[in-house]
């Protein structure tokens, strides 16, 4: 553990929002670290603060307290444009509801992060990765012409297109049936292993959490347990 390089390091991060009944704490001070190639599942009941934690770790939202260091950069000290640039260079995302842009074909959706980062030869890269996720024959299809599983494959291809060092996934199988969900889990972890990407995911699904090296259980905005998944599986 000591030799591992941490690419994500959160210290005492918390989140509070003001609501009609005064200030509401969604996430109590939490610390965690993710090393290169590591995989971490965040589990917990609805409203436990999983998505909030993921958003803070990925720099999509700003914590009320504490600090996040992502890819050796302190997110709190960066502007939104700088954070966006950092995400474009080293971070991938997979969402429950895919978030593909309807106006773009599968290929163009995959090209998008590459283009945003100013990469060269984006078409070849996009085609390669789409072929790897099994959609080589769906390049010119629009999202509304694809099935749910295919959409999530495009989203995974988009997430890996920029060769990210870390990938955040929010309920990646939440909108899929069991068989398709299993395919997506396999794909996600295959690519993860091939690229050596760190993986942080939020899930309800035990079989998905089981595939991760570590599992964090959140309840009422607080980490209740942190365990090695194999132990969870064996117990």
């Amino acid at each position: 553990m000591l030799n591992k390089r941490f690419i994500l390091n959160a210290k005492d991060i918390s989140k509070a929002v003001s609501g009609p009944g005064g200030e509401l704490t969604i996430l109590k001070p939490t610390s965690l670290a993710v090393a290169q190639g590591d995989s971490l599942a965040i589990v917990g009941p609805s409203g436990s603060g999983k998505t909030t934690l993921l958003g803070l770790l990925a720099g999509l939202d700003q914590p009320s307290g504490g600090s996040v260091e992502l890819l050796d950069r302190n997110l709190s000290a960066m502007s939104e444009d700088e954070r966006a640039a950092l995400r474009g260079q080293g971070v991938g995302f997979v969402f429950q509801s895919f978030h593909l842009l309807d106006s773009l074909t599968a290929e163009e959706n995959v090209m998008l992060p590459l283009e945003l980062a100013g990469a060269d030869d984006v078409v070849t890269q996009a085609r390669d990765i789409l072929t790897r996720v099994g959609l080589g024959d769906r390049l010119d299809h629009y999202p509304n012409q694809l099935s749910g599983g295919e959409k999530q494959r495009v989203a995974i291809a988009r997430a890996y297109a920029g060769q990210p060092q870390i990938l955040f996934a929010d309920e990646p199988t939440g909108n899929l049936d069991s068989a398709t969900g299993q395919e997506i889990i396999n794909l996600l972890f295959d690519l993860n292993q091939q690229a050596g990407t760190a993986l942080v995911l939020v899930t309800h699904e035990q079989r998905l959490a089981d595939r991760c090296a570590r599992v964090i259980r959140l309840e009422a905005g607080q980490i209740q347990s942190e365990s090695e998944p194999r132990l969870v599986a064996e117990s």
């Binding site: 939104e80 444009d81 966006a84 640039a85 971070v91 842009l101 992060p113 945003l116 920029g162």
Partner: peptide, 16 residues
């Protein structure tokens, strides 16, 4: 707004 947020998430700058 939704598409803007997606582009932001994927690394799009304000200028883009």
């Amino acid at each position: 707004q939704h598409e803007g947020a997606v582009m932001r998430t994927l690394g799009g700058s304000g200028r883009q």
